[in-house]
Design a protein around this nucleic acid. Structure first.
Ligand code: NAD
Ligand code: NAD
Lengths: 208, 208
DNA sequence: GTTACTTTGTGAAATCATTCACAAGCACCC
DNA sequence: GGGTGCTTGTGAATGATTTCACAAAGTAAC
């Protein structure tokens, strides 16, 4: 298939969230315009985004909320649960471990690793923090696909290399350093300080 | 000035980070190619990004690390500290309050608010959590410019409205719901579940 | 001072993403 | 069953961003 822009995938995720809300309110169908107004985009954008994957609507009517939800879940790979490990059980790692939003969306935390003896052994939302030395063998046996990396920047690249060597497929990085991975591994970073700097820029340039 | 793309501002932030590392290593000058390789972009992109704001380099030599750093800090509005409040002292809010990366970059946490009597009164990194009812009066007297919103999705929009009414300039939202603000307020969202869904999409489409 | 080499700054070209605009399809009603 | 109104799906147009490519400006060495 033709390459799909990241911005499109991001919007598909948002549409799915709105569809779920709509479903909870008992609505059966939804138009591209309604989906658009929720997500701050345009109806043409919604239709274009969906058209990359097929045609799911009925002219004159709109989209079946439940049908479109399942198609989107399928497209996004959310039809099955994903096994996720967290590396680094510090402040951010612990918050992530206890975040219900992940489990609700099919991301199951199957392992948490740290180096600090104070953290090892703690149970976070039912999962016990284990020694990072067990990480590789666990990854092999659990077959976890995704890692959340929440360790200090200095150790982020070495840990990334270990995760890649152990066969991880994707990494979500919270350290404020760019990481290098081979091309068969997908990596994304959440960089909160950088987001604040973008706000800072907007504040000093708002009237310019 | 001409409108600057968000992607450009984001890269400027990254360049600044690399420059600071370079400075710490004692380097005096840096070329666009060196900056690019750190950030996973191209030298032409670096030069184009900078050219929107002026010409800071010396042909044949590159850029003075310290000069370019200060120019970038100025452009991004990091020349002065920003006053930041955190709304919601839960797991994510507490992690943010104790995160050193913000302070290092000039973002000072001047207030933390919650509704839960269990949280109110706690000191997080030297700042005491206060009752959300004090939020408006504090904001007026402190003149805080930026808010980090780390509350449950259901209360995110009402709290946003209160922040806007109290004169906040920018909001970084961690709740997984899109928020509406008037156009003079800047808002950005960090949506971690959505980031995971983008990884999920990448995993199921990696060989396609 | 001249030559050889490096690197910037920037229009022009190419690529990528969004918006427009409208024919075609479907529901609903009479 | 034909008319009316609404909404999709999609090429074409527009707009935005990135990449190309090269003249101009500097360094460094002798
Ligand atoms: N706290 C925040 O709000 C926040 C915000 C943005 C980014 N971050 C980034 O997230 C990362 C973690 O931040 P934090 O605030 O949770 O810090 P933290 O110090 O609370 O946690 C880091 C954890 O990583 C563990 N660790 C260190 N080396 C390890 C190794 N080799 N293997 C496994 N675990 C190891 C430490 O023991 C610690 O528990 C940092 O890179 C930070 O820059 C944090
Ligand atoms: N924990 C995570 O890793 C994580 C990850 C992604 C997104 N989020 C989002 O961040 C938000 C907070 O998550 P959390 O895990 O910290 O939850 P949490 O329940 O630990 O914290 C929420 C806090 O908000 C406070 N609060 C509720 N109503 C309030 C009000 N009116 N005024 C002030 N404070 C109020 C609560 O008392 C609580 O302390 C949620 O929207 C969640 O979806 C969290």
């Amino acid at each position: 298939m033709k390459h799909i822009a990241e911005s499109t995938v991001r919007r598909l995720s948002l549409y799915l969230r709105f569809l779920e809300e709509f479903e909870a309110h008992g609505h059966q169908t939804i138009s591209s315009g309604e989906l658009a107004s929720q997500g701050g985009t345009t109806s043409a954008q919604v239709r274009k985004d969906l058209s990359f994957f097929g045609s799911f609507g009925k002219r004159g009517l709109g989209y079946s909320v439940s049908d479109l939800s399942s198609r989107l879940r399928e497209i996004l790979g959310l039809g099955r649960p994903w096994k996720v490990v967290i590396v680094g059980a510090g402040k951010i790692g612990a918050a992530l471990a206890q975040y219900r939003g992940f489990r609700e969306r099919g991301f199951r935390i199957v392992g948490i690793y740290d180096v600090d003896p104070q953290s090892i052994g703690l149970a976070l939302d039912g999962v016990t923090v284990r020694d990072q030395r067990d990480m590789e063998t666990d990854l092999m046996s659990l077959n976890a696909e995704i890692a959340l990396l929440a360790v200090p920047a200095e150790v982020a690249q070495p840990l990334t290399d270990r995760l890649v060597a152990a066969g991880i497929g994707a990494i979500l990085n919270f350290a404020s350093t760019p990481l290098h991975v081979p091309s068969h591994v997908t990596i994304r970073s959440v960089n909160m300080a950088l987001e604040l700097e973008i706000l800072s820029y907007a504040l000093v340039n708002r009237d310019a």
